[in-house]
C-alpha cells in the first residue's frame, strides 16, 4: 500500500503526464494509435507513482538565469581544459596539487550544489568535501586554484540566486 505525505495536486499530475508524454513521442517517433495510447497510459502511471515527491514550484526566473549561466561555464570549461592538457603534455609535468578550503557566502542548498558541480565540471579542480557552505577543493596547480580563490564562479552563482528566499 502506497502511503502519501500530501494529497496529489491534479495540475501537478497533469503537467508531469504531459511532459513525460512529450518525451515518449519524441523518442519513439511513431504516431500509431497503439504506441500513443501505451505512451499515455505509462506517462500517467509514472506521474501518478511519483506524485508524492515534491510540490510543483514554478521558478522560471531562476531557471532562465541558470540557463544563461551555462555558456559562461562552458567557456570556463574550455579554458581550463586547454590549460590542463598543456600540463599533462608538458615533458616536466609541472603540477602542484593542493587542497583549498573555501567558505562560500551562498545561502541556498541549490546554490551550493551548483557551485560544487561547476567546480568539479571545470577540469583541474574537484570538490572533495562539502559541509553546509564550506567546501574543500582539490586543485591540480596554482593557476587552477586561483580561479577558486578568486571566487569568480561563486560570485556568478550568488548573482543567479540573489532574488530567491534563503534556505541555508
Amino acid at each position: 500500500m502506497v502511503t502519501r505525505s500530501r494529497p496529489i495536486s491534479s495540475e501537478f499530475l497533469f503537467l508531469k503526464t504531459i511532459t513525460l508524454f512529450v518525451f515518449w513521442v519524441l523518442f519513439s517517433a511513431s504516431f500509431e494509435w497503439v504506441h500513443l495510447g501505451l505512451g499515455l497510459i505509462f506517462s500517467f502511471a509514472v506521474a501518478w507513482l511519483n506524485s508524492g515527491h515534491s510540490p510543483f514550484v514554478p521558478r522560471f526566473r531562476l531557471w532562465l538565469r541558470i540557463f544563461l549561466y551555462i555558456p559562461w561555464l562552458f567557456y570556463e570549461i574550455i579554458r581550463s581544459s586547454l590549460h590542463l592538457s598543456k600540463l599533462i603534455l608538458h615533458p616536466a609535468l609541472p603540477i602542484d596539487p593542493h587542497l583549498i578550503s573555501v567558505e562560500s557566502k551562498l545561502h541556498h542548498h541549490a546554490a551550493v550544489v551548483l557551485l560544487g558541480n561547476s567546480i568539479t565540471l571545470t577540469p583541474g579542480t574537484i570538490t572533495a568535501e562539502v559541509d553546509r557552505n564550506n567546501l574543500i577543493v582539490h586543485a591540480i596547480d596554482k593557476v587552477s586554484g586561483a580561479d577558486i580563490v578568486s571566487k569568480q564562479i561563486e560570485l556568478k552563482i550568488a548573482d543567479i540566486f540573489k532574488d530567491e528566499k534563503p534556505d541555508l
Partner: peptide
Amino acid sequence: FSRSHAVSLTDS
C-alpha cells in the same frame, strides 16, 4: 586525486 582531474577532462 590528480588522475581524476584527467578523467574529468574526458567527460567535460
